[in-house]
Amino acid sequence: MLSNIMSILLTVFTALVWGLLLGGISRTVTAKIHGRMGPRVTQNFIDVWKLFRKTSSIHHGGMFWLAPMFRITGAIAVLLMVPVVVGQNITYNMSFAGDVFLLLYIMFFGCLGMALGAGNSGHPYAVIAVSRGLAQMSSYELSFSVAVVAIAVGLHTFRIEGIVAAQQAGISSWNIFRFPFASAGALIAFLPMQMAYPFGIVLAPQEIPIGPPTEYSSRFLSLMFSGRALFSVAKLLFFVNLLFGGASSWLSLLLKTFLLYMYTVVVSSVFPRFRTEQSIKFLWLVPTTLALVDLVRVML
């Protein structure tokens, strides 16, 4: 029991640090691609700490107040539902309590809280962002669901441990090779999931001039940054388990999540942005079709 709690705490802490670090790296890499100096790799830690120590003097209502908590709870819940290191049962945390379906749905917990907070802020741009984000989410979830179902049905299990266990017979047993089309679909869906370009429309309202994060400040914002970092790592972890055979050690875990993260960063840096309806259509068409190929294969 105690060791379980320790493992949970350790997972959350590691994920937070790793998530913030990855964020910092991504900022640096993007800056280099743009030919800028860019911030330090540790800039995110500094930001989070600084913001955390400041106090916000205003808020816009109950849901506004609760939204960061929803956000961070959702992120941690997803994180804990995924096994961390294959073979180390203690790091499986809460993953016994649910399967991929549960994971697919609990991912929305944080998003919904965030959207509610944005709505309660009374700021129209925040709500525009939410409406775009939801519209886009409903389209990438389609391809992602198809991919996950194809893989899960192909492996005859919905349990994430089961999916990981089925990939332990060498690299060729990784799902990315066993289900290449579904994996391709899932990896394309991963970009909008991480709000990466060319699907970064959700973040656009904050450029119009401002957006949800600006309405949030100080400690609220710090929690939201942390939540985002945690959620990002949770999704990376899920993908590593789903497609890349899971991680047999902490080192391979860091490596795999790093590479996967870099994939979004690189793609994100070189692509311009879709309009929302363009991205919706693209996501309905391309990754879904890809994933369907494997689904049909599985059905036959």
């Binding site: 709870t73 809460m94 299990t157 919905f158």
Partner: peptide, 24 residues
């Protein structure tokens, strides 16, 4: 093929939410 333990999931979410709330 699948498992679902609603009680554990519920407890987990409530605990995490509670910690965040109290901390705040």
């Amino acid at each position: 093929m699948g498992t679902w333990n609603a009680w554990m999931v519920g407890i987990m979410v409530m605990v995490v939410f509670g910690i965040a709330f109290v901390f705040y």
